[in-house]
Design a binder for these strands. Structure first.
Lengths: 291, 291
DNA sequence: ATAATCTATGCATTATAGGTATCAATTGGG
DNA sequence: CCCAATTGATACCTATAATGCATAGATTAT
């Protein structure tokens, strides 16, 4: 049994005429007769009745025609599907993201990717910044979405989002009713920051900003999640400079103020260059939403 | 692209080793390498990654494996399905039956056939006795279920059920409270019968029964359906001898009495010998429920 | 370093599919 | 009633393609 035989069978079942079917198959009539005979032999039952002037499908032939017709369609679909999977338009992609990314860039990118590649099943995995690198190296995740955390030749990086910092103060703070402050205004305050080790770029953005006003921030507490920083501020433990999109976190006791001369902080995609999953390429090629 | 290639692909996808896969396919390793290469070329993307010591499926290969695995299964099923259809164990069978048959033999036969051949879709068609012959000749129905209605060489016949007659009298009849009568007891009554033309055998059973008691029944009304006969009797238009299973029709105003020395009447299957539908053979081979 | 393992490649051989010619059967027209 | 036309099957030949053998090339384990 051969696919060619099955395709020939379908054409013959449609034309019900060996000569014309052979013509449509770009072969001569005798080979077609033999193909059908071989097929019938391998199934063990006639698929056509040959009468003097007509060819008709047997009941078995009619049953077989329906099944094979669907099957040939499925085969063509499977081939297309494999091509799509090779391109990365079909498959499974695990996206590891820091929770901070969920506040700004993640929803938009996920929405655009899903719209363009509906056959890729996206698996979203909230990951602490310190775990993201290993996740990508070990293959637990395919793409990471985070602020720049380490210069590492084993991972590729592409920026996709930029935003300024803003200041967040306790509601009880003397400046909390203003709409904007400069870092210098907070020289005497206790700071809550992000650990330097996990995201040097973000940490340095804060300290450099302070140093440009001639002071070193008095770091009181460090924690990895921006939400937690805001929470601590709201409880009066200090002030902080956080990414502007954290304003969305409307928290009682926390006041967000624009930061004059703010540095710009960045988020981007990380991926393992040797990851064989072709969906990775499709994701990192998404147009960035750099603002 | 060839079915052989697809089967080879599946075996290789399972073993992930060209040599061993070739062994299982009863070919040597080089042809398998070329089969896979050809397949990959025709799809346009690699299905396996060959590393130094290992072979692994690409994402496209994994997608393709799943699709093709199901597809090969479907193909085997389609072949089996065609064989079954050729045997008559799959397909469509139209059964034409007289309404009288629905009172006794039909339900049992349909139930047994459906149980044995669940993949044959049965189409049941109530048919007047006078239409049954033409239905079978014209191919509107595949099998007929009826009392013997005509000797006809173009149709085959096989008896499947026998039962005696019973007498049905109006409740107002002088004998209606008895449990049995003989035909002779009804010599003076008006008879309601079945037309001779459509079912000579049944008609003759009634008249012969009367003649054995030395009288010709006074036929008042003729109608084709046994139910109608009983209905007319119940309305006092006469008496009748009807098949015993008509007792099931518990109708107010009608009294059923056993008939002494009753002839036995018969029902059977009719079919067109040249009907190409193999399901016909399966149906007529059902063990008869001759009682 | 060397042997072992595994896939790819070149080449000769064989199998099989397709083409041409023709036959057999049937039907429709003259 | 015969003959031409149509249609599918068969015989035989040719060409293409697949198979097997031998071996190369690459890599890992001892």
């Amino acid at each position: 049994m051969d696919l060619k035989h099955l395709r020939s069978f379908l054409v013959l079942a449609e034309t019900l005429n060996f000569s014309r079917a052979a013509q449509r198959l770009n072969i001569t009539q005798p080979p077609l007769s033999r193909q059908i005979a071989t097929l019938e032999e391998s199934i063990g039952t006639p698929l056509f009745w040959r009468h003097s002037r007509s060819v008709v499908l047997t009941p078995a032939g009619e049953q077989f025609r329906q099944d094979i017709s669907r099957l040939i369609g499925d085969l063509d679909f499977a081939v297309e599907s494999a091509r799509l999977a090779a391109y990365g338009g079909r498959g499974k992609l695990t996206l590891a993201f820091t929770m901070y990314a969920a506040w700004n860039v993640l929803p938009d990118m996920v929405a655009r990717f899903s719209a363009e590649y509906p056959d890729v099943s996206l698996s979203l995995s909230e990951t602490l910044p310190r775990d993201l690198h290993d996740s990508l190296i070990q293959g637990l995740a395919d793409v990471g979405l985070s602020f720049p955390f380490r210069f590492d030749h084993t991972l590729q990086y592409k920026p996709v989002f930029r935003e300024p910092l803003c200041a967040v103060l306790p509601a009880s703070h003397r400046l909390s009713s203003q709409t904007s402050v400069s870092a210098g205004d907070l020289a005497q305050d206790a700071f809550i920051t992000f650990p330097k080790t996990t995201a040097p770029a973000l940490h340095e953005a804060v300290t450099n900003c302070c140093e440009s006003y001639g002071f070193k921030p008095a770091i009181k507490v460090e924690t990895q999640l921006q939400q937690t920083i805001v929470n601590l501020v709201a409880n009066g433990l200090g002030v902080a400079l956080v990414p502007d999109s954290m304003r969305k976190l409307r928290l009682e006791g926390a006041a967000f103020l624009s930061l004059k001369d703010s540095p710009v902080i960045e988020q981007g995609l990380y991926w393992n260059e040797h990851n064989p999953n072709p969906c990775v390429q499709r994701f990192i090629e998404l147009p960035a939403a750099l603002s």
